[in-house]
């Protein structure tokens, strides 16, 4: 397991050289430059994949979400404002991709629950799953979705408070409040875990 890149190097961080390069690639993508599109997909996909995987812990579903997200990014590429940071724009779309997929999944599950029996052959094949890491993903699962989202964007995606605020269409103050509430809850959860070694 390699260590996380530092925040200054992460494409999720604001004001870095990487951010500027990605924004320029996006502008070239808007101008229909195929090379820029390919490079952008290559550089942004790992960040998006990690974001989706941190929610699903399911490689297959994370791949589906990644593809769906790129379709949406492609359709909405005109809505990127030149000169603005790219990653908050990308994450705003990724966030909605995830939420829409979640709603669809809930609807599908509720429909399936109404069916008495399903023939064995109709079950989908199991996708490989990643075991959630103790002490972090398990704890995050106990947080309300809005707080969990903020912590994932801050920690997993390496975004700044400002970028998370932009991606979630909130004010910086609101994001900070959610993060601090999440830390308080995580402290309680960790404290309640007697078996947790320090």
């Amino acid at each position: 397991m390699a260590s996380k890149p530092s925040r200054a190097d992460s494409p999720g961080s604001g004001g870095s050289e990487e951010q500027g390069e990605l924004s320029l690639l996006m502008e070239r993508y808007q101008d229909a430059e195929a090379e820029a599109a390919e490079e952008l997909v290559g550089r942004v996909s790992p960040i998006l994949f990690r974001f989706f995987l941190s929610y699903t812990h399911d490689v297959g579903r994370a791949e589906d979400l990644l593809q769906d997200c790129w379709v949406r990014i492609h359709r909405a590429r005109h809505s990127f404002r030149r000169g603005e940071p790219l990653m908050p724009w990308v994450f705003a779309i990724a966030r909605h991709t995830r939420l829409d997929a979640l709603r669809k999944r809930i609807r599908r599950k509720s429909r399936e629950a109404l069916m008495d029996s399903i023939p064995e052959g109709l079950h989908t094949t199991e996708q490989p799953r990643l075991a959630p890491r103790e002490n972090f993903e398990n704890m995050l699962a106990e947080l309300p979705d809005s707080q969990r989202e903020v912590i994932i964007m801050l920690k997993v995606s390496g975004m700044t408070l400002e970028e998370v605020a932009r991606a979630t269409s909130c004010t910086v103050g609101s994001v900070k409040q959610k993060a601090h509430r999440a830390y308080a809850k995580l402290r309680r959860i960790l404290n309640d875990r007697k078996d947790d070694s320090e």
Partner: peptide
């Protein structure tokens, strides 16, 4: 405990 949990490096998937 919180600092330790948050400092766990992310997997490079």
């Amino acid at each position: 405990k919180l600092h330790k949990a948050m400092a766990v490096p992310e997997a490079e998937v």
